[in-house]
Simulated scan of single mutants.
Amino acid sequence: MVEHEVLQADAHRRVVRIGDTVRRPMHPWSASVHEVLGYLADVGFPFAPRVLGIDDQGREVLSYVNGDSGGDGWARVVDESGLRAMARLLRDYHDAIAGFRPRTDAVWSSGSAPPRPGELVCHGDFGPWNLVWRGTRPVGVLDWDHAGPRRPIFDVAYALEYVAPFRDDAESMRSMHHPSPPDRRRRLEIFAAGYGLTSLDGLADEVIDQQRQVLALVRRLAAAGQQPQASWLTDGTVAATEAHIAWSVRHRDLFGG
């Protein structure tokens, strides 16, 4: 009997596992994402799922990566070895994708602008929930829907928002599995070193800048009626994001750099 498991039941994006495959809805940007994943397979990057085709329901078929993901990822990056490994994986991805040149007509979830000088195709949603973990070792990168051309520091800053984290003590302990208030400066340093940065100068400001970029993108997609962003305008998500940015600005001194 083929194993069938619902991995995500959101109305706008139902994801299921069937045997050793994952079936996900297609989007206008899926062809561009498939090119990225195909390129990664060609250059031997082992941490991304492989594109296996389109099924008879019009869903993309990807290889299943075995391990823990989703909410399990938070506890893995509390551990400093997991934090360091996550940073190293991000650098490995950026090194692997550096030679990729998307088609001039490529469409991404964020738009259709081609890469500018200094940009590469970032993952765009590089959080601990989108990694597959075995212990404190990440073995896969999931959910490439937000891939698109950006400066590499965007992925670094996006990850740091959640793993430093750029959140207050209460949320860090309640939602991110920290047993006590985190030493944010130390965690910033660990991640930066794992990625290969030689300086923290301006890094905290990059995190705040990407928070603002993401909020602006959410508003633009919501205005176009795209889900789940449209629902975030009314369910409190956008208001919470605004509050997170305000907290980051007020507590900028916690992060140094």
Rank of each mutant, 00 (worst) to 15 (best):
R185K: 12
H94Y: 01
V132S: 00
G44H: 09
H123F: 06
V36A: 07
I54G: 07
L89I: 06
E171P: 00
L142T: 01
G67P: 00
E119S: 04
G44Y: 09
S69N: 09
Y195K: 04
E60S: 12
R76H: 09
S69V: 05
Q8I: 00
Y64A: 13
D209Q: 13
V33F: 00
E3M: 13
P49T: 08
E60L: 13
A243G: 12
G118Q: 11
H27P: 02
E3D: 10
H34C: 11
R84G: 00
L83Q: 05
Q213D: 15
L62E: 04
P138W: 05
P228M: 08
Y162D: 09
W29K: 01
D169R: 07
W108E: 01
L89M: 12
G99T: 10
L254M: 13
R103Q: 11
P165C: 05
R23Q: 12
F126A: 04
P49M: 12
W133I: 00
I208V: 15
L40D: 02
P179W: 07
N66W: 14
I208K: 03
R252E: 09
A96R: 03
Q8N: 10
L215C: 01
S231P: 15
L254I: 11
G124V: 06
G70V: 11
D105M: 12
L221F: 03
R150N: 13
A193S: 15
V78A: 07
M173D: 02
R103N: 10
W29Q: 06
V16M: 00
G70M: 10
H146G: 08
L7E: 11
G82Y: 08
R187G: 09
H34G: 09
W29A: 01
Q210L: 12
V214W: 03
L52M: 14
C122L: 00
T237M: 07
V218E: 13
L221G: 03
A75H: 07
F47L: 15
S199T: 14
R167V: 06
R174Q: 15
L188K: 00
